[in-house]
Design a protein around this nucleic acid. Structure first.
Length: 297
DNA sequence: TCCCAGGCTTGGT
DNA sequence: ACCAAGCATGGG
């Protein structure tokens, strides 16, 4: 992977060349994140996405040159924010591919061929916590809508090189907040309880404990102590928020998949260091086979 | 009208 | 320990 710092009309840009196994569309549609939206493309650009995370925003283009991308931000922003967000320092692809072949797992082999441009995003504990509390028994389109409404109501409106966006609310902004009219449904009660004003210090302590937990198991246990966070949501938060790659979230799709493809049991131990990546590949591929029509995120 | 969506809590065995 | 109902809401 090579970086080139250039300038265009709007300011500094970073061109990334030789970035293998990276697909904006696949990441946007993978169901990990809910604030990545497609933009119209122009000449020389195959895909263009607006990516929001925390208070940050960037436009990223996939160019006509294979494995070449343009990040419309400064080199500092790229290195400090987006390189980490997209988890570009390590590529699990080769390990999982050779593992799938060694285990004669043709489904996984097909899955990585189909969706090998997926990365496990590093979205931080805070944003992952909120988004995946909303995600339970919900669909991706509606999750994205609720998250968007939340950002509009409690975030800050900003403009990045001509693109308007709202920052993700900070923790203090949600203490005692009004969670009605966000389309949360029955999940609203979970938010009201978690962000009760008189429990603000309890929340802060709990959050820090989760953040500094010494292991996946400890973090997961702590997460599941809160109402609204069960086994699956805790796994998603561990994986996307805390980089516990051994987490392997099982939702309704994964249940069906494991039933269908692996006759009821899938052993993650051969992929222990990257079980979450394997899960994403399986999830993404299986949905592509089964779904008739579905919006992205 | 019924069923499903990146499930969880609660209350029954 | 496992199982079922109920849970808001929107879309097919």
């Amino acid at each position: 992977m090579r970086l080139y710092k250039l300038k265009d009309d709007d300011g500094e840009i970073v061109v990334v060349a030789g970035l293998q196994h990276f697909s904006l569309k696949q990441i946007a549609d993978s169901g990990q994140c809910f604030r990545m939206t497609a933009l119209p493309v122009s000449d020389g650009i195959k895909e263009s996405y607006s990516v929001c995370w925390g208070e940050h925003h960037v436009r990223v283009d996939a160019t006509d040159t294979p494995e070449q991308f343009v990040f419309h931000c400064t080199e500092d922003e790229f290195r400090q924010t987006w390189y980490r967000y997209f988890c570009l320092d390590y590529d699990w692809y080769p390990l999982v591919q050779s593992g799938a072949v060694a285990n004669t797992d043709t489904f996984l082999t097909n899955a990585i061929q189909y969706g090998g441009g997926i990365r496990i995003l590093n979205q931080g504990l805070w944003e992952t916590l909120i988004c995946f509390m909303i995600s339970q028994n919900n669909n991706i389109k509606r999750i994205a809508k609720s998250v968007d409404l939340l950002c509009q109501k409690y975030g800050t409106r900003k403009c990045d090189r001509g693109i308007e966006y709202y920052t993700f609310p900070s923790p203090p902004a949600l203490i005692g907040a009004d969670f009605s009219n966000l389309g949360l449904g029955y999940r609203e009660a979970y938010f009201n309880e978690l962000f009760l004003p008189n429990h603000a210090s309890d929340f802060a302590n709990w959050f820090i404990k989760v953040h500094t937990a010494d292991s996946y198991e400890t973090a997961k246990k702590l997460l599941m102590m809160t109402k609204g966070i069960g086994n699956k949501v805790a796994d998603c938060i561990c994986l996307y928020g805390l980089q516990h790659f051994e987490a392997y979230p099982i939702d309704t799709w994964m249940k069906k998949l494991i039933d269908d493809i692996y006759s009821g049991h899938f052993d993650t131990t051969p992929y222990a260091s990257c079980a979450g990546y394997v899960q994403q590949l399986q999830f993404y591929y299986y949905r592509s086979l089964k779904k008739t029509k579905q919006g992205g995120c």
